[in-house]
Design a binder for these strands. Structure first.
Lengths: 332, 332
DNA sequence: CTCCTCTCAGCAAACGCTTGCGTGACCCTA
DNA sequence: TAGGGTCACGCAAGCGTTTGCTGAGAGGAG
């Protein structure tokens, strides 16, 4: 592959001149410039990012460390991230956290060894040390999706409290008085927030909190099945239920059917988290769709902003999910 | 960040010795070795991949160029690729082809500029030049998912002919005589192959080919709806239908319901391509599940093999999908 | 005619590593 | 005791860029 030296020789100039015309980093006489450009053309010179990185210290690349399996919106998220990064001249390197602390540590290390300029990270559950290490090595990072107020880093994620509250309001407005909640796993801040939102929504609708109406602590399809099954046994059973994530929505939906409940008529289900099949079932599932694209893009923007100016205080951006209205809420 | 020089100074040895203990590239006296290791520990030295790359010429990275949006199994595929690559000490760089020729060209260029050791590529429709350019610059590449016999490169993808034939056999064995086929988009080799397999299956089952029973040329949910609608208007309408891809399966499923057909009883639907909600509807959808993980892993393996030995003839690996049996085929 | 100021461009020192080549030190055999 | 063979390790030349410094020449002002 052609190097700057080849170009320089062909154009009859020094290497530094070639560098300067390539980077437009100092003025070069028009004639010279043209000779260099012609030489570049002829040699097919493309530049060596590696060598450049060695001297500049930057790599124009960002690392993305998340669970490549556990995130249901991974493709969409990655797509948004890649697009935004590419637009800014950055390349995305991948690191799989495997959704646990060890994998996360390994992924972050690997990305650091690759000298990424910055990182996007969806922290694994139970992680503590990685974030510290990240801060210590001062590789700029922004947390995606799983936001925590304990951390002094840039963060982006979905807004959970108001949006869940909205879900409650929506159901209450349709006349429901007994609204169940199937919550997510305990250790996640998002779950707590959604539970809080649920409570808040109840209050706004003038309904009483009843711990019998809250089931959960899971994340899988099966968890959703079991949770709804339990909710359906309580006295004065709920006529509507809000689920904490996509998989559990599916489970609950299925279980409701299995109980012979007519979804959208006598029983309402609304979910948190958009799922791609929400439209394919009948009735379709009303959900709070997370602004996945927007989250991805914002994450990259925050990172680039930090790269540009490392000294601004960390920012936390909460993006509001949008209520996507389908049949399962039965509000017509 | 700590450099080899820092380590060397601290351990009281030369840089080259540090390099040799890090890479285990020549024997070092036990005592020295330990001092070096201690120094590495103390300095937190991690190695600089950039500098190493500059001298070795390799980057220990592979580029993945595909449409980050269009591929329904992206997450799973990327996960498999990343895992296999990481196990071999490689890092994955992403390039989005946007599923068209221009994007593809840009993605490949970008990855080449990053000096990836090799590339995994899912060619965009209508592409021609990129593949040639790829061959010319001799960056090793393997084609994923969209296999073409016109190309002399390593390739991995799903087997289409036999597997579609199997689908037909399955339906025929359940007593269906009029089996429809909703084919994919024309320009894709896979569609042709599946159509061929459909025909082959008919022959094997002793059924006649009837062009009225073939609809399609699409890829979306809507295409599936329309195709099935058309099939249901033909005289002696089909009692079963095979769909060419996941989205169209959904459309067909929905349309069948809309027509009041009882899926799994009077009407059978089987799909090509696993979809993650296949289990969530009732009856579940019987599909030919593509071995996505295996495809990803094989792709990386082929690439690494080629990196190790560039002179072996290109290999094409076709991986057989697996029939995942659920209710929609009605065969009990 | 001298001195200054510009413009244009080359020189060479990094950047952090790998690796071929050398050189002591030591031990063994003849 | 000399010659040969091993071991352990250091030296220094790159790898392809970027960039601070320097210098030559041209033109203008005094």
């Amino acid at each position: 592959m052609a190097t700057m030296e080849d170009v320089a020789r062909l154009a009859g100039v020094s290497i530094s001149t070639v560098s300067h015309v390539v980077n437009e980093t100092r003025s070069v006489a028009p004639g010279t410039r043209e000779r260099v450009i012609a030489a570049i053309e002829k040699t097919g010179y493309t530049g060596n990012v590696i060598a450049r990185s060695l001297v500049t210290g930057g790599t124009k690349s960002i690392g993305v460390a998340m669970s490549l399996l556990a995130n249901p919106h991974l493709a969409q998220l990655i797509h948004a991230i890649e697009a935004e990064a590419t637009a800014a001249g950055y390349t995305v390197l991948l690191g799989d956290t495997l959704d646990h602390a060890d994998g996360e540590r390994a992924a972050v290390r690997k990305l650091q060894a690759r000298r990424v300029d910055g990182m996007l990270l969806t922290p694994a559950p139970g992680d503590t040390t990685t974030l510290e290490q990240l801060a210590r090595t001062n590789v700029p990072a922004v947390l995606v999706d799983r936001v925590s107020h304990k951390v002094k880093l840039d963060q982006v994620g979905p807004e959970n409290i108001q949006s869940t509250s909205t879900l409650v309001s929506h159901l209450a407005a349709a006349g429901h008085r007994r609204i169940g909640f199937i919550s997510g796993v305990e250790w996640m801040g998002a779950s707590e927030e959604r539970t809080l939102g649920y409570r808040l929504g109840l209050g706004r609708a003038g309904l009483r909190w009843d711990s019998n109406l809250v089931a959960g602590g899971g994340a899988t399809h099966e968890d959703g099945v079991l949770a709804l099954r339990r909710l359906l046994t309580v006295p004065e059973r709920p006529t509507a239920v809000i689920t904490g994530n996509g998989a559990m929505t599916a489970g609950a939906y299925r279980e409701a059917r299995a109980h012979g409940l007519e979804i959208g008529k006598e029983f309402a289900i609304v979910g948190h988290d958009e799922v791609d099949w929400a439209d394919l079932v009948d009735p379709g599932i009303t959900t709070m769709a997370h602004p996945v694209d927007e989250i991805g893009r914002t994450a990259v923007r925050l990172l680039l902003a930090r790269l540009a100016d490392p000294d601004t205080p960390p920012e936390t951006v909460l993006l509001a999910p949008e209520l996507v209205h389908r049949g399962s809420c039965g509000c017509r």
